[in-house]
Each structure stands twice: as structure tokens, then as C-alpha cells.
Nucleic acid binder design. Structure first.
Length: 256
DNA sequence: ATGCCTCAGCTCCTGAGA
């Protein structure tokens, strides 16, 4: 089965691209971030016609996440249980025997800002809940827009961007702490091209210059790790006429 | 450059994103 994540930066604008992408890439599960719409605007009918069940958790203007699946999703949970949050950032569901958690992690804006502190507390809240969720669900995938790079290999200009947002030691500590729960960065389980990124700024011709960051990740649990067959970033949609600034990331799991 | 582009909204400017 294939499971994918894509930050679409407005589902209203990107819906035709998402539908076209699903036709070309009929994955079992796709989690979406930055819907930027309320649930009453969510295009259920379009996804039904495309052969997908949809669970959404939207919000006006900002954030918003969804989980699409070929087979029905069960035990749907919105946001982090035990962590009070005004924003729609996380959606979890079981598809087949895999627990899928799609997240839009806080941006953080700037180290030292209130938004950065919120990002740190959100990451801690996620980790504390995830520890229990992993114990309950050994076959688990946590994927989405993490807004954090692991290390210099994920950054187009590691010197110039040192200690800036997405690249600080404090953010990376929290990312490693998630890994320490028993998760693995599916992308790095395989040899990958150098300078592989999942996001490129809209400005300054960043995409054609490949000035990007790898901030969209797929983490798999210990139990799933031996089943991972591939993990790729699909840069094709970034070449569309009105692209999202993020590219989809796809993991393929073997059937037991 | 507190710049560059894109999106939503109390829409012709501003806030936020990353």
C-alpha cells in the first residue's frame, strides 16, 4: 500500500491538481495540509467520485488537514488528545491495520517569538500523546508538513540558514525526540539524490534553482520499518502552472 | 530590503507562510 502527504496551500485553489494527482498516483491514503477552508466548504463529492473516503478537519483562512483513503477510515481523532489547541493541525485514523496520523506542524515564524514557543509546546504535546498511541498501534505512520529539517542535508544553504526557522537546534531536538519513540525517517532508509527537498519558496525562482528545504516527512514505526519498500518526493506537481510550494511525499509499504 | 510570491479576507492592503 502507498501512503502520501501533500501540503496543498489552499484546497480551494489546488483541488483540480489533487484530483489529477490521485488519478496518476492512486495511493491508498493521502493526507493533506493547509486546506484553508471550513468543513462546510470541503469538496466531499469530488473525492467520492475519485474513489476516496474523506475525513476533514478544517478551519477558516489558516491550517486545516484531511485524510483521504480508498477503504473506509475508522477511529478518527482530530488534534492531539490532552493538548488544548485552537488550530486544526492533526487528523488520525486507522486504514486497514495501519494507524495513519497526518499533521500540519506549527511554522514557528521566528526563534524566540510567541509562535516559536507554541511550536515547541505543540511538539511536546504531540510526543507525549504519540508515546501512548504507538503502544496502542504498533503499525503507525506519522506524516505531514513538519516544518523542521533534520540536518544540513535537508537545507539548500545550511550556512546562510543556520539557526533560522526550520533549522534551529531546538526544533531538531524535538524531531529527534519523536524518532526516539521508535520511529524512522522513511526517506533516509534509502539512498537519495543530494539536495532533495520537499518545499521551495515561491520567490526568487527558488524551485528552478533548487533552493529548498526538506520539511515534509514520513515517519514509520519499528514494526512497519521492515515493510517499507520505497519513499520518494514527487516534484512533478511543483511544475504545475499554479503549484503549491510543497511537493507530495509517498511511502510504499509491502503487505506483511 | 521590514524586498522578491501566493493565498484569504472586514479584499486595492495586510498578515502569514517558510
Amino acid at each position: 500500500m502507498r501512503i502520501a502527504t501533500w501540503n496543498v496551500n489552499s484546497l480551494t485553489v489546488r483541488l483540480p491538481q489533487v484530483l489529477a494527482w490521485l488519478t496518476a498516483n492512486p495511493v491508498e491514503v493521502l493526507v493533506l495540509q493547509e486546506l484553508k477552508m471550513t468543513d462546510d466548504k470541503f469538496p466531499f463529492d469530488a473525492f467520492t467520485q475519485a474513489g476516496y473516503h474523506a475525513q476533514c478537519f478544517g478551519q477558516k483562512t489558516y491550517n486545516g488537514v484531511a485524510l483521504l483513503s480508498r477503504s473506509p477510515a475508522t477511529d478518527v481523532v482530530r488534534n492531539i488528545p490532552g493538548f488544548s489547541d485552537d488550530m486544526a493541525r492533526l487528523i488520525s485514523a486507522t486504514v486497514g491495520d495501519v494507524r495513519v496520523i497526518g499533521g500540519y506542524f506549527p511554522n514557528g515564524q521566528e526563534p524566540g517569538s510567541d509562535k516559536f514557543e507554541y511550536k515547541m509546546s505543540w511538539l511536546k504535546g504531540l510526543r507525549e500523546w504519540l508515546r501512548e498511541e504507538l503502544a496502542r498501534n504498533p503499525k503507525l505512520v506519522l506524516l505531514g508538513d513538519y516544518n523542521i529539517t533534520f540536518d544540513d542535508a535537508d537545507v539548500w544553504d545550511p550556512v546562510g540558514l543556520k539557526d533560522t526557522i526550520h533549522c534551529t537546534e531546538e526544533e531538531r531536538y524535538h524531531l529527534r525526540a519523536l524518532i526516539a519513540l521508535g520511529l524512522h525517517d522513511a526517506y533516509r532508509l534509502f539512498p537519495q539524490a543530494e539536495k532533495s527537498y520537499s518545499w521551495w519558496d515561491y520567490r526568487n525562482f527558488a524551485f528552478p534553482r533548487n533552493r529548498g528545504l526538506r520539511i515534509d516527512h514520513i515517519l514509520v514505526s519499528n514494526t512497519l520499518k521492515p515493510l517499507v519498500k520505497s519513499c520518494v518526493i514527487d516534484k512533478a506537481p511543483r511544475k504545475n502552472e499554479r503549484p503549491s510550494d510543497h511537493a507530495p511525499v509517498i511511502v510504499e509499504l509491502a503487505n506483511d
